[in-house]
């Protein structure tokens, strides 16, 4: 094979960074409970390894959308896809972490974390090996044999995160993951989660009501409006990771998101009062 042919057969690709593939696509997705519309016309594309945050006034249906993507709830309109396949049920490719941790109190930290691989049919030794990696990365070393009831909130949330990651999902869905933690603990877990995200190269979708959390961690912040809610803004946070909370540019983003959000909260309060 001549040199020219070789070049033609293997075109230089190293210089071109391919755009990450779409991981989650939503086209006009909506969820209705009886006559109440929780979310409607939810349209967005979340790409591979993107960290997207959904923020909005309380009761705006942001968790509802997350649960629909997880497969816990069914959409009543539009299309919701993961890897181009419509979502029909929950699956191990989407890990979930709840605000309330939802650990299994009868299992130790280690056994909580190995449950995913155990369910997948992995032998116990292999499940434990996989769990150890995430126990180490989430800073749970030494607590393997503790029962959840003896742990602090921050530790419980680490267990929940490690448990979700041990299932090796492509997508991590976080439902107000810092909501039950005190400020100090929250800052630690947030910092760790950023590092984990960088190390694990997962797609993360996080629901929160905190502008600070959303702007600090996410590549993009989707702002949901008052009920029935839809996306009112899609703010790209164009700063490298990991971010410094004291970065003045971050402050600007915070102000921008806060301004849009405040307008939505005002509107939602007016709607509520007029009822």
């Amino acid at each position: 094979m001549s040199n020219v042919e070789n070049i033609l057969a293997h075109p230089v690709r190293e210089t071109v960074v391919p755009a990450p593939r779409p991981k989650i696509t939503a086209e006009g997705a909506g969820v209705r409970f009886g006559s109440v519309t929780a979310v409607e016309d939810f349209t967005t594309t979340i790409r591979e390894r993107e960290f997207v945050s959904i923020i909005g006034p309380s009761g705006c249906g942001k968790s509802t959308m997350l649960y629909a993507i997880a497969g816990f709830l069914k959409t009543t309109s539009g299309v919701l896809k993961v890897d181009g396949e419509p979502i029909v049920k929950p699956g191990p490719n989407r890990g979930i972490v709840f605000q309330e941790f939802v650990l299994f109190p009868w299992r130790t930290v280690l056994r909580n974390i190995t449950l995913g691989p155990e369910i997948a049919g992995l032998p116990r030794a292999e499940a434990e090996e996989r769990a150890r990696k995430w126990i180490r990365l989430t800073g749970l070393g030494g607590f393997e044999d503790a029962y959840p009831a003896t742990l602090s909130g921050g530790m419980k949330q680490r267990v929940a995160i490690a448990r979700a990651l041990t299932c090796e999902p492509d997508i991590l869905l976080l439902d107000e993951p810092f909501g039950a933690l005190d400020v100090q603990t929250k800052n630690y877990v947030m910092k760790d989660l950023q590092d984990l995200w960088i190390a694990a190269s997962k797609t993360i979708l996080m629901v929160t009501h905190s502008v600070q959390e959303a702007t600090l961690m996410a590549d993009r912040v989707l702002i949901l409006g008052a009920r029935p809610s839809r996306i009112v803004a899609d703010v790209k946070i164009d700063l490298p990771h990991p971010r410094d909370p004291a970065d003045p540019r971050l402050g600007q983003y915070r102000q921008e998101v806060t301004a849009i959000l405040s307008a939505e909260v005002d509107r939602s309060m007016k709607i509520e009062r007029s009822r």
Binding site: G71, F72, P90, P92, V102, I119, A120, C167
Partner: peptide, 10 residues
Amino acid sequence: KTYWVAASMG
């Protein structure tokens, strides 16, 4: 949510 966690583990 307990059931959901199990379901998301497949």
